[in-house]
Each structure stands twice: as C-alpha cells, then as structure tokens.
C-alpha cells in the first residue's frame, strides 16, 4: 500500500508546558515535547504517570470529563489547540483516536466506518461505499469482512478485528494524527502483531502517537519514545502524586543510552 505520501501531514505537534488537572488533583505536570509528523511516537511509563492524560489532552477529549482542565499550550498548524478560537469538533476530526478497549458502535460494520463521513455530510451512497472499502483496506480488515459489511454488527467481530474496525473508522474521516491509547492491551499476541504491522504501514501517511505499557512494543514500532514517571510529595499529611515527562528522544537512543538514571532503571527493571 505504498501511495504517494499525503502532503497535508507535515506539521509538528508541539506540546508546551502542559499540565492536566482533574478537579483538585494534578494528573501530569509541565510536559514539553514535539511530536514529529509521519512518525510513531510512543508514551511509556508506569500506571498513573499521566501518559494517557497527555494523549487525551491532545484531541481535547478531556473536555468531556467533568472537572478536567488543561494548562499550557499545544501548538499545531499555527494554532494553540486550547485557544478559544479553536473548534474542538474539527480538531477531533483531524486528530483521531483509537481506544484501549475496542469500542465499535452497536451497528453494522458498514455503518461503523461510514459514521464519520456521514457526520461530515457525505450522503452519496457510492462515495460512502468507496470510503468504507478503502478505510477497511487500509486497516487490513477488508478481506475478512467484505462479505458481511451489512450483515454483521461491529460487536460480532473478534477483539483484534474490532480494534482494526475502530482504526478503519478513524481513518474514514481522513485524520492527520492518530492517537492510540494502549490499542493492544486487550488483544492476544497474534492480533497485537497485526495491529503493529498496520501501524508501520499507516505511518507513511499519518502521524501516530501510541500509549503503551509494553516496552517491547514501543521498541518494535516507535520512532520516538517519551518516558513518564510518577512524582510524589507529602503535603499536610496527604500524599500528592502526579506524573512528569522524564525523557524524550529517538526510541533507539532512549533504550540504548538513556540520559536519566530513572529511565535506565525502568527499562532495565522491566527487561531484567
């Protein structure tokens, strides 16, 4: 599937001193990093280090969580994404998301994929079919489901197929960035493998950010890796915890010559 790379995907996603809060608790504090276009960037770190919060902040999905608020900036295509002037709906169209647990809609496979294009006002049956077909091809699901597009509900597929359906669904609105929140954690090794292969395919056209628990996965698929860790402090007898970005760099470099002792400990601890 080697097409000419899309011209549009050429902007860096620059996160600048961003903190995410849920009510009174800080999930992650002053994160600064730049995500390169058409590369896979992996966020790794222990549970509760805020990597998912950062990911959800990028397409402003946190807006929907009661009490959540974000400080700092994310610059993309010359806009600060948290600017009043930015439309979160259009933003989420451009920055798609694949979730930890596959969440196909309780509709047919076709309707699942056509959902996004329909939102954009595309009603023409022929165009819709073309989009569905191509998106499923991109997600390497077409051959498995081509005969039950209308018959089967998205929920009747296997876990790995469901996740690929969700990826196809995200691709159908032609996003520029795809955020993946531990997309393989609910899947078996074979399904994981196919998703990873798919990511390597897609990165020609899309910027991909993936949160993962699995460091081998980060090593296998990503070009860049950001390591987050948990900070703790006692205040007034209450233990405060929040996440911070420790190190960010090319995956190979980060795994082979980590700059920080923490990173080295985490990596070796896991590998050792």
């Amino acid at each position: 599937m080697s097409e000419t790379p899309k011209q549009s995907v050429q902007d860096k996603l620059e996160i600048d001193a961003m903190s995410v809060w849920y009510g009174e608790t800080c999930a992650v504090r002053s994160v600064t990093l730049a995500i390169n276009p058409r590369r896979i960037t992996a966020f790794i770190g222990p549970s509760g280090c805020g990597k998912s919060s950062v990911l959800r902040a990028i397409n402003r999905l946190n807006d929907l969580v009661p009490g959540a608020h974000v400080h700092g900036k994310i610059n993309y295509q010359g806009h600060n994404l948290y600017d009043e002037q930015v439309d979160p709906v259009e933003l989420r169209r451009r920055i798609g998301m694949v979730f930890q647990k596959p969440n196909p809609f309780p509709k047919s496979i076709y309707d699942n994929v056509a959902y996004g294009p329909r939102l954009l006002g595309i009603r023409d049956r022929k165009s819709l079919t073309a989009i569905v077909e191509h998106s499923l091809q991109q997600a390497a699901l077409w051959d498995e489901v081509r005969n039950d597009l209308h018959k089967k509900s998205g929920l009747e597929l296997s876990g790995g197929q469901q996740q690929r359906l969700c990826i196809a669904r995200a691709l159908a609105v032609e996003p520029e960035v795809i955020l993946m929140d531990e997309p393989c954690s609910a899947l078996d090794p074979i399904a994981t493998q196919s998703i990873e292969a798919l990511m390597r395919d897609l990165v020609h056209d899309y910027t991909i950010v993936i949160v993962t628990h699995n460091m081998q996965q980060a090593l296998r698929v990503s070009d860049y890796t950001a390591f987050f860790n948990i900070r703790k402090r006692e205040q007034d007898g209450v233990e405060l915890r929040w996440g911070e970005l420790v190190e960010f760099g090319a995956t190979k470099q980060l795994f082979e010559e980590p700059q920080h002792q923490e990173t080295a400990d985490y990596i070796s601890g896991r590998f050792g």
Partner: peptide, 25 residues
C-alpha cells in the same frame, strides 16, 4: 457506556450528533 460517546467524539462528531446517533438509540 462512556466509550461509545468517546468513540463518536473522537471521530469529530458534535455533541448533538453523538446524542442523536449513539446515546439515544
């Protein structure tokens, strides 16, 4: 489930679209 709403928003649906096409059915 909240995941249905998030899935819909993640594709660039507005709130009304999400309610009408995912939540209510």
């Amino acid at each position: 489930p909240q995941s249905l709403r998030e899935g819909s928003y993640g594709l660039g649906a507005t709130q009304l679209q999400t309610i009408a096409r995912q939540v209510l059915p």
